[in-house]
Design a protein around this nucleic acid. Structure first.
Lengths: 155, 155
DNA sequence: ACAGAAAGTTGCCGTCGTCAACCAATTCTC
DNA sequence: GAGAATTGGTTGACGACGGCAACTTTCTGT
């Protein structure tokens, strides 16, 4: 029956919503721990951005607005925070006088590497029993979910 | 080589972290839209709790502290908000004079049902191309992930 | 009966994102 | 090429939200 398929779909969506709700609350703690491991004064929200800058090379702040889908103002503040801590460097974009390019500083890279090493050593505490393939599949699903969320609400 | 396995595992973990970071930012908007659909003044955080009370029958506030892993105080405020809006009812627990049991009010149920129906009708806007099985698998992964996060940090 | 422990409430505070106003540099347009 | 619209970024005001701690009330254990 169509209704059954629809029903289970609906249930899956509801379950998904609940799990996401739990996630966004629990993850705060984990990110908090990890950010403190990188730098005592590093705020959780800034850690995620630092991590992204580290992965995706020099980029401008506005690029992160798109990725994280948050306000320019919020990005600006987090970036300032990261600069204050000496974790990233800001340099003018040679191709556009308005823009600035962000790079993780040497200290920032060292700190991130150290934390990554710690995490690798213990195969990440809590997820140790997840096979790499499942982790990848999970990350891929998350990405797809995020992409779906990225579609403008006014379709 | 072990190192390669470890490396890809580490990469998967980093990717996972980034995706989760994006998720927790984007999801805010979606939850925000949905909560407003239920009630104009319903705050996003309260919507998730309302939804949980609706699924998991009469329960006490402290039960949600465990589920969502947040402070008693935060729960108390959200619950008060939900009561102010007339979306849930609070009744003393007959088995424990300290506790109160929360139930979604008739109005609350009606509003949730209406929103659920809307969501079902359009097979949830953005996730329409996800088969139910994948959605379920995704939700299951999320649950497992959440469970892993739930393990106390001090192992 | 008395010392905890558990359920909630409340105030204070820090984090964080949005909105809007604003500046500077760039691009578009006639 | 001057003026308008656009884009990158900063800042301030504000609201949502959770953590912590103090406190009340109601069990529970011995």
């Amino acid at each position: 029956m169509t209704t059954e398929v629809v029903a289970s779909r609906s249930e899956a969506l509801t379950a998904l919503e609940t799990e996401v709700g739990v996630l966004i609350r629990r993850i705060r703690r984990v990110i908090g721990e990890r950010s403190r491991a990188v730098h005592e004064e590093l705020l959780p929200a800034s850690y995620l951005m630092l991590s992204y800058v580290n992965e995706s090379g020099p980029l401008r702040a506005s690029a992160m607005c798109a990725v994280f889908d948050i306000d320019k103002g919020a990005i600006s503040r987090q970036v300032q925070h990261l600069i204050d801590l000496g974790l990233i460097d800001r340099a003018p974009d040679p191709e556009d006088g308005r823009a600035t390019l962000l790079t993780v500083s040497a200290d920032g890279v060292a700190r991130l590497d150290r934390v990554a090493a710690e995490r690798r050593e213990q195969l990440d505490d809590r997820l140790a029993d997840w096979p790499a393939e499942e982790l990848q599949a999970f990350a891929a699903s998350l990405r797809r979910y995020n992409d779906a969320l990225g579609i403008p609400a006014d379709r």
